[in-house]
Amino acid sequence: MAIVLDGIVFGLQLSLLAVGLTLIYGLGGVLNLAHGQFAAVAAIIGAVLVGRGHAPLVAVTLAVLAAGLLALFIDRTLMRPVYKLTGEARVLLSLLLTLGAAFLIDGLLIYYHPSTALNLSVPRLGLDLFGVRMRGSSIAASLVAIVVLVGLMLFLRYARFGKAIRSIIQDEVGAQLCGINPGRVRTVVFVLSGLLAGLVAATQAMISSVGSTDGLNFTILALIVTVVGGLGRVSGALVAGLLLGIVYTLASFHIGAFVTFVILLLAAIATILVRPSGILGKVS
């Protein structure tokens, strides 16, 4: 049971990580392979600031904002030419350009901060849940993730801008005819995805350390969750994240860490073969 709960904790992080990525795809049919690097950048900036004596909360807030800023920069520079294309050319260019950006960021981070890592300590209180003692760090990380995810879902469902986002995903032309500017919305969502990735760096840092080399891992995990949840479906990313989190933790515990990744890969492949629109099935 403890493992399942751990799985949920991890799963919440995965959901948080994947939600931004899946939204970007839903809005523009593009994928950001530098997504994990947003988290890595946040981790390093946070770690550096904490190292300089700033209060962790301040450091983390600044770090998350920095991730958002980086996302804004990439959207305004790299994504402009990408959105001018359509269909497969657009996807390809987005993959190649963001891959280049990922390499650039990774190269810089690993070179200048090879061993810097963010570690956030959370007060040692424990809580009993279903008879299992949960560490303060897990609880804190999960709470943040839950609040943000729920907030995001509510926003998408009820806020005017949230509805505008959904409308573009459902029918971009229709949205334009309603006076909604898809480009501007995409930029906002891209920045949001950066902020969310930065936030995951913070929540993960409560549980284990997050360093400069974790960027690619985060990206790939987010990609797998996105695929299993169905590209472009926020609810799918949520469910898939939780599911894969549990699978990951269970497999890790019973079989071993490295086979776990094989299982995740197989999960992605299985989803593509059996339910290409994600585990939640076709959108009605």
Partner: peptide, 18 residues
């Protein structure tokens, strides 16, 4: 294109971990 990219990228991760 996307799925091949994702699956193969995931495989890169799998390889490293293996």
């Amino acid at each position: 294109v996307i799925f091949i990219g994702i699956v193969t990228l995931a495989f890169s991760l799998v390889f490293y971990n293996m």
